[in-house]
Structures are given as C-alpha cells and as structure tokens.
Design a protein around this nucleic acid. Structure first.
Lengths: 198, 198, 198, 198
DNA sequence: AATGAATGAGCGTTCATTCAT
DNA sequence: CATGAATGAACGCTCATTCAT
C-alpha cells in the first residue's frame, strides 16, 4: 500500500548505482570511451538503458564518476605500502604483487583510457592531472630511499627509478587487461630486477 | 593533354594508396578503431573522404590492410637484428633502441589496437594470431641463447625471458604513444637490467 | 485508525483531481502540448508523476479534459454578460475587462493551443469545433444589436463586428500569456474604439 | 570525370539551404520548437534528415538562422513605409495591408515562437531582444506624429498608440497563421479605427 | 491512494558509405 | 581519378507510461 520507505529506496538506489558502476567499469576499461555504448553498459548491468539516466546524468558523468573512484582507489592502494611489514624491498615486492593483482586491472585500464583517449570529459582530465604520476612518485619516494640506504635498491635518482618502475607496471597492466594470449605477465622476480641493487 | 597511360595511372594509384596508408596508420594507432573517423584519415592524407573508397573497400578493409603491413614490418625489423654487428647484448640493446624509436611506434600501436580492441575485423584478428608473440620469441631465441652462452644474458628459460622483455617493451610503447607527461620512457640501461646477467 | 470510508475517498479523489487540473491548466496554457512534460504538471501539482495516472489515463486524456472544462467555462463567462447591469456598451466594456482579466487567460490560451497545435487529441478537436467562434458570436449578437439600436455600437454586420472583436481579444490574450516586455496590452478605451459608434 | 566546379557546388549549396530554410520556416512557425522534429523539416524539404546537418549545425542553429532572417525582414518591411506615397493615414493603411499579407505570416509566427517558447537558443533570444517592439515603435513614430499633425491620427501618446496597434496586428497574425475557421481576419477599415481620429 | 524505480519508443545527431558529376 | 552532396543505420538521451511496493 504505502510506497517504499526511504531506507528501502536508498538501498535500491545504492545497489543499482553499484551495479551500474561495476558494469561500466568493465566495459569502459575494455572498450574505451568511444567504443562503449550506453546500451552495452545497460546490458552488462542487466537493466534498461533508460534506467542508466536515472542514476547518471550522461555517459560523461558516468565515466567521470568511475575515474574519480579509480584515482582515489589507486592512491589508497599506494598508501597501504607503509602499513606493510618487512624490509623495503620486500614491501616493494608486495606492492608490486597487489598492483598486478586481478582486482586492480580495470582501474588501471580506466585511468589509461582517461589519459589517452580523445573526448574525455574535462573533469576527468582534471582528476587525472591532479593525481598524476608525480604524486605517486612522491608517495613512494620514502620507501625507495629507505631501500637505497639499506643497500637493497639500486642507486641513482630515486624519483627516476620509481617513475620507470611505475611506467613498466602500468604498461603491463594495460596489456594484461585484455584477454589475449599474446602478452605474458612477467614473474615478479624478473620485474624486481629493475629496482634491485645488483 | 594526352590522357595518362596505364603505367602512370598505376603509379598514381600506388602513390595515393601509400599516402592513405601512412595517414591511416597515424590516426588508427593514436585513436583506435572506434575513435577514428574516416574523415580524419582523409584530412590527414589531404584528400577527400570519398576518395578513400576508391582505394579501400571500407574502414575495416583499410584497417586490415594496415595490420597486415604492420605485422610484416615488425617481423622484418626483428630479423634485422641478425645483421647487426656486435655482441649479443649489444645487439639486444640496439634492437631495443630501434624498437622504442619513433618510427616503429605506430606499427606496434596498431598491432596493439588490433589485439585489444573490440570490433576488430575478423581477418585482422587472424593475421595477428598468426604472427603472434610466440613467433617473435622464436625469432629472437637464437640471439638470446647466444647471449646466455656468452654470459651476457641472464640465465633461465630464454623463451620466458624474451616474452617478458617484449611484453615490457610493448607496454611501454603503448603508454608512450600518447603525449602525456604521466609516463616516462625509462632509459635503455634500466630496461636492459631485465635481461642482463648480474 | 479506521480506514477511510467511501465518501471520504471520493472527496480525496475529487480534490486531487481538481488540484491536477489546476496545475495542468497553468502548464499546458503556457507551454503548449509538446512543450509540457507530465513531470512538470506533477511538480506544479505537488504530487508524484506516477499519481497522475491514477486520475487521468494519459497526457492526451488530461489535455482533453482540460479543454472540455475550458470550453464550458468560456461559454458560461459569455452568458454572464446578460446578467450585468448598464447599457450595452457598458456591458461590452465589462465583458472585455473580465475577459482580459487574469483569471480567464489560461482558459483562452488552452483553447488557443487546442485550436492551433499539431498533435491535439481528436476528442479535443471535436470539442472546440463544436464550441466554435460562431457560437460565441451568436451568444453575443443580441447584446451588440441592442447596442446598435441604442446608437452606441458601430453599425454594419453585427456578426462580423463581434467576430472581429473576439479575434482581436483572442490575439491579445495569446500574446499576453507570456511575460515579455515585447507586447503591451492596450487600454480598454482603445480597444472599444473598434466597436463604438463614432 | 572532374568533380563539380566551385560555382556549381555553391549553387547547389545555396539552393539546398534556401530549400531547407523555407521548409523549416513553415514547420517551426506552425508547430513551435518543441513540436518540430528535424525529420519533419527534412520531409518538408524533400531531403534526408542527415543532409540537414551538412547545412546547419543543429536544430538550434537552424532555428536561430530563421529568427535572424525574420527579424531583419520585419524591420526592412517597416522601413519601406517611408518610401510609400500618400498621406500618413494612407501609408499606415498600406503598411497594415502588407503586414497582414500572406507572405509575412510565418515570419511573425516564428518571432512569436521565439519570444514565447521554452528552450529557445540564447542567440535567438538576444536577436529578438535587440529588435524589440520598442525599436518598431521608434521606427514608426515619425509617421504617426505626422499623422497626428495632419489631424488624421488619434491624439495622445503616439508611442502607446503604435505599440497597441502593433500588438493587435501581432495577435491577429499569430491567430491567422493557423488554418482554422475559428478566427477571422478583420477588414482593414475596422482595424484602422484603432488609430484614426474620430 | 501514493511513490518512484523501471521500461522502451522516439528524437537529435554523427558518421560510414554511396553516387552523380 | 576526384569531389562532396546525399543517405540511413545507429547511438546518446528524454520522457510518457507501467508497476511493484
């Protein structure tokens, strides 16, 4: 009789929103902005395309929301390295592991799309500009410098080392995000050679 | 004016075709299939969009032709390593340099697009399947094995090493294809750490 | 709480219906059929859009109901002129005043919309056909003829005079419905020149 | 062989543009912005809807172009009154005649739509603001003041008289633009009563 | 009776492709 | 061979309408 109460409505809304976000993340990450049709997201989310627009103002809005989440998530992940136990190089290893981990792929890809595609919403551009590689580098600098002092990490400009390492990881993530047998994800031991002191 | 003879016509055709291919390579590599409009290619090639269809049946046809060329070019590039002078590790270094070099990028990128995009023409898919990572690995295996025997290249499964190395390079190529300050291309010395014996 | 009895329910229904009709009248009159969204009416009425459909089958149904009411109201208004005191010309003046008056505007406008818009429901078309200009003219004819006999109203074909006068009034109503500084509502003295004997 | 030359192309473009403008004027005038679908204009012009966008960037662009033309046309028409022969009142009569004339109706209606509809493009709003009633009044003021001095035009504030007269004419134009038997266009003699000295 | 989540037809717009010249 | 006018399929988005609660 009575309409749904506020709590139920909020719950439905939150669920649907999450459902759409999860679906959109998959599709955008794989196909890019131009290659993603709203109908694909709707289908992936199991709803009608019309309903998308109850929850997100536009394709751009949806994409930007995703980028925002991805950017925040990526930084939160980086910060966690300082809560890990072990020596610097061990913690770098664990960071690498969790980065290359399954879960984070779509986020990486999404940010890649946002960085490199045409027609990216202005706000999304600002977001990725603000949360740039530089910021990641500064976040990790203390860890790498500790590693250098401990003789575990290769000497030289720590900033450059981190930037290179992140670039290599990013590149691999982007490749690996697609299900093709044509790239292989190197074992972590191999990757660590890039930063380990010889 | 006398009409052009057959030979001249053929020459014009070939020139035009090359012109279109060069333009299309640039645009497809940077923007992907979905992000590329035929009008962009026409503009880049300095011709009318209508003329594209005198030389290529469709967008898919054009893309597939490009992939075909890129695949052949990539393998030819790989083969040249055996004509280079110097020790194995020096030749790997030169291969790396020329790979990351400006000229080769669009080919790599195009193949990446073909591998990872949705909506790729079937024939293009077959082409890149045929000329897969595995093939590259086998091409380079003799070189790496020589390097291992010479004590220059890290020990272990040479195939795995090559595959990893190519994946890292590919990832970096993909990232570097777009002009953003958010990735940096590592110095070759750094990259070589992945394969050098310590 | 005891459930509401039938009488109370009926009363609620009638009140709500009136509320919706009043809201819809405002919006339709100002914005036309195509320019009016059901959500606008719902907002104006202070209810949810879903509830509209408990009271009216469709947008067309609502519009048609409105036209029906407007047509009846307009004729009732015309009839009232015969209950007014004063000489014919004075009563024409009062009729003019009350016509141009705020209250009557939406009805006039709605009828105008129904007459001139495309996509008007068939039943609404029939209604305004039935209650045509001609009918208004005949309603007013006795008054104007009295005026002519009294030497107050210009001579000539009374029917034509009335029709012209109503057309001028209608046109002004239509213009004045929108709040732009680009039309001015003439003073009644000026308008009366159209019908007064010189 | 050779493509069409510039002259031919320009001619085709101009013809098509005129064709579209004429069609759009009809449809917009009759149905308003919201009620007009681009497909209607295309059908009326006898072309595909896609082609509309070769000639006009958007529905708004097309509408604004029309308003611009209508506004300029209206003012040009007003100016012509000063090239007419005869006494002031005769010239007012001729102006009235040509205003109520068939050809000008869609222009009037279009400006009416632009003034009163929702969702009117900003540039169109600016245009009609710039070419407002006030401007028309000032254009006609000399003529009406001459008429007053000659004892042909009713005394009083000439500006008010002109504004009222134009409002009445505008209202009638708006009504008469739709083909319904429900309004009648008054004879000019009747309308002139509004401005003639008694 | 009342709410708002959900659907899908339909419109504005883009762009690959065709074709007259 | 070369051009650009022309077409129409398909996408982003809106909104009338339905329906579970």
């Amino acid at each position: 009789m009575a309409p749904l109460n506020d709590e139920q409505l909020t719950q439905i809304r939150d669920e649907r929103k999450e459902q759409i976000i999860a679906a959109a993340l998959q599709v955008f990450a794989r196909r890019g902005i131009a290659g993603t049709k709203m109908s694909m997201i709707a289908t992936e989310a199991g709803i009608s395309h019309g309903l998308l627009y109850h929850y997100f103002k536009s394709k751009d809005d949806l994409f930007t929301t995703l980028v925002e989440g991805a950017v925040l998530e990526a930084h939160a992940e980086m910060k966690r390295v300082y809560e890990l136990p072990g020596s610097p190089i061990e913690r770098i290893r664990m960071l690498t592991e969790s980065t290359l981990d399954e879960g984070g792929k779509p986020y990486f890809l999404l940010i890649h799309q946002a960085r490199t595609s045409e027609g990216v919403p202005e706000r999304a551009k600002l977001l990725i500009e603000k949360y740039s590689l530089e910021l990641f580098v500064e976040q990790l600098r203390p860890l790498f410098e500790q590693g250098q002092q401990a003789g575990e990490v290769a000497e030289g400009d720590a900033g450059e080392l981190i930037a290179c390492y992140l670039s290599v990881l990013s590149g691999l993530m982007v490749l690996s995000a697609h299900e093709t047998p044509d790239y292989i994800m190197p074992r972590i031991e191999l990757l660590l050679r890039l930063v380990e002191r010889r």
